[in-house]
């Protein structure tokens, strides 16, 4: 891996069943990165399980959502002098074996944000039909706004450099940092790149994106995408 210091940020909400295995696997496959678990107001032992493994844990007293957790991770990374922050799900969907490939283009200065994509190459991932439809929709929205294709806009397996983290301190779609974030970053001139990765089924627990959110998510994300498109970058 590169000599630039990388922080892996893992947002966790009620993930005590799988976060231990995720951290163990990460330690085994990427031993040279530092890890920060952002416990986003969990009511289970997620934070304690992470602490037992000796990684840094920052705890939100209430739930802020993935975006809020990620923003906390960025703040931590900036304050502690990390050059790159990589976002990894606690549920084991993201294979740490691909972390080095994800971070490499950012570390080499070839792009500002790298996105671990299920679709750049055949990754063996099969999403449910509803979700696939949503991915197609948001991929189309991003293509309209940025004039280029990003196949996997909902991927939460990404790496960011410092200038991106600094911008995200002030302007960030808090609820769901997907298509709106990519549009907003692309419009600011940050270079985005997709990196092929393999994704797996989550180990246990429930996804951030479920039930009531299945209706709110498309609405919110469409509106936020539109806003990111027409807003002047501040």
């Amino acid at each position: 891996m590169s000599e630039l210091r990388t922080l892996v940020v893992i947002p966790a909400l009620d993930e005590e069943e799988c976060i231990g295995a995720t951290l163990d696997e990460l330690r085994r496959l990427a031993p040279d990165v530092d890890v920060l678990v952002v416990d986003d107001g969990s009511r289970d032992r997620s934070g304690a399980v992470a602490r037992e493994r000796g990684v840094a844990v920052v705890r939100h007293v209430t739930n802020l959502g993935v975006g809020g957790a990620l923003q906390t991770g960025f703040r931590y990374a900036l304050e502690h002098g990390y050059a790159i922050a990589a976002q990894l799900d606690a549920d084991g969907q993201h294979d740490p074996a691909f972390l080095a490939a994800l971070v490499a283009p950012v570390a080499a200065g070839e792009c500002d944000v790298s996105i671990g994509s299920r679709y750049v190459a055949d990754s063996g991932y099969h999403a449910p039909a509803g979700r696939r439809l949503g991915m197609l929709l948001f991929s189309g929205v991003v293509r309209l706004a940025l004039g280029r294709r990003i196949a996997d806009t909902t991927s939460g397996f990404r790496a960011y450099n410092r200038p991106v983290m600094e911008v995200c301190q002030h302007d960030f779609p808090v609820d769901f940092p997907d298509a709106p974030l990519l549009i907003s970053l692309g419009r600011r001139g940050f270079r985005l790149r997709e990196v092929p990765v393999r994704m797996r089924e989550r180990r246990a627990g429930t996804s951030f994106y479920t039930l009531g959110k299945s209706l709110y998510y498309p609405y919110k994300n469409l509106l936020a995408s539109l806003m990111a498109w027409i807003q002047r970058p501040v």
Partner: peptide, 10 residues
């Protein structure tokens, strides 16, 4: 505020 508290606590 929640973020700040979390980081300070850490």
């Amino acid at each position: 505020v929640i973020r700040e508290v979390a980081l300070l606590r850490h």
